[in-house]
Every structure is written in structure tokens, then in C-alpha cells.
Amino acid sequence: MKTVFAPTSGMTPVDTSYCPGCSHGIAHRIIMECLEERGALGRAIGVVPIGCAINAHHFMNVDMCESTHGRAPAIAAGIRRVHPDKLVFTYQGDGDLASIGAAEIVHAAHRGEKFTTFFINNAIYGMTGGQMAPTTLIGQRATTAVDGRTVEQAGMPLRVCEMLATIDMAVFVERVMLTNPAQVRRAKAAVHKALDIQEARKGFTFVEFLSACPTNWGYAPVDALKWVEEKMAAYYPVKNFRTVEL
């Protein structure tokens, strides 16, 4: 018999610490599949964030380090200075990247740092238990916005791709979602493209994954995916914002 689909060697055999139906698992898998397909697992160095995905280094089968909260892009910039020929990436959630780490991601993009950032946007703080994030939608409930986020109190949700796409050296910026098999295939193509551009040393590359957090949203996993498609994608359009010809 012939293998059609098998778990990637880019993932360790360790069971993930994520809740049932959490999109982190899908994002992890496709990033690691891409590295495996490129034969790049052995020359990849990753930086994990603070948040649920701090545990990613137990699951991603590459050399990795943990980060202080939000500073993964600065850490990756440091790694890049020592290892200009390696494939470097950060993996960050929306609290980590869009709130406390907003300065570091903007300046990594602005310098055209030659690494790739994978941004998991699930519109909430997961690990700390469902507090409002900069990306929480208007009306969306959170433990620090129990009646739903309001514009008056917390402003509008931050669109990170749109912001980074205004920066010249952010040469690849794409938002994808992990809500059905076709979208997952499309997400994987975006990951490959970002890594192609990183390896061509064209500039900073960024992929945002609209992701589900069933536990903190209070939805069943399948319903959470529908919520991503209906609500999140309405505010955060799934598209390529910037790319470069190779």
C-alpha cells in the first residue's frame, strides 16, 4: 500500500497541549509540512511566543527558543545576524504580536528582516483565559469585556496585515484562514511562498492565520470554524496584501 497522507516528521510525537479543535494544531502542522517538503527542518530555527503556543517547541521538530512576551521578532533578528543562511521564523499569537509586541513586529518589518512571522489571530487571549485582545471583534465577548467589546471603551480591532502592508520592506503579507480543506491548502501555499521569499532574501514575510479558539469563545469546534468564516473573515479579509516576484 502507498501512503497518501501521513503525519509530518516536522511534528514530534508529543501530544499537543492545545484544546480540542484549536487551530494551533493545523497551523503547526502545515508550517512543519512546508519545512519538511523543502528539506529545511535541519536548517530551521524558530522562536515561540508567550501564550498557548509557548509550548510549540515541544511539538515542532526543529531547533527553537522561547521568547519574552512580544519580543520574538527582536529575538529572530538576533538569530538572523548570527545565521544569515538559516531559515528563521517566529510563531506568535495576537496578544503577543498585536498588543505587547506591536513595536517589535513593526520594526522587524520596517528593517526588512529576512525571517518569516506566522501570526495566529484568534481574536482573544487564550492562555490567560479569554481576555480581550487588540484583535477582538466589536461585540465579541471576553472576560474583560463581558457584554462584548465596544468602540467607545476599546477602539476598533487592529488589522495587522493592513498595517504591515504599508511598510515597504514587508514584501510578502498574506492573510489566510484554517476553516476548510481548500483554505488549509491555500494557507499552505502562502507559507511556501513566504519561505521562498525569505530564502531569496527579499525582505520581511508575514502570514496571518485566522484561527479558532473554541474554548474561550464558548463554541463547539465546528461552530468555531464557522464563526471564523462568517464573523472574522468579514472584518479581516482573507487575501494577499503584498507579494514580490522571484
Partner: peptide
Amino acid sequence: GAFLQAESELAAVNMAYGAAASGGRV
């Protein structure tokens, strides 16, 4: 060697951490 002017001291110390964690003298 490599010189990089950071966007803040917060970034500088973390750049240093990344470079040193990957084996550079920093």
C-alpha cells in the same frame, strides 16, 4: 561582526538573547 540599532532597549536585549542563544558572542 554585525551591528544593529534596536528600536528600544527592550528589543536590544532580546536581539542579544536571540543572537547569543544561537551561539554568537554578544
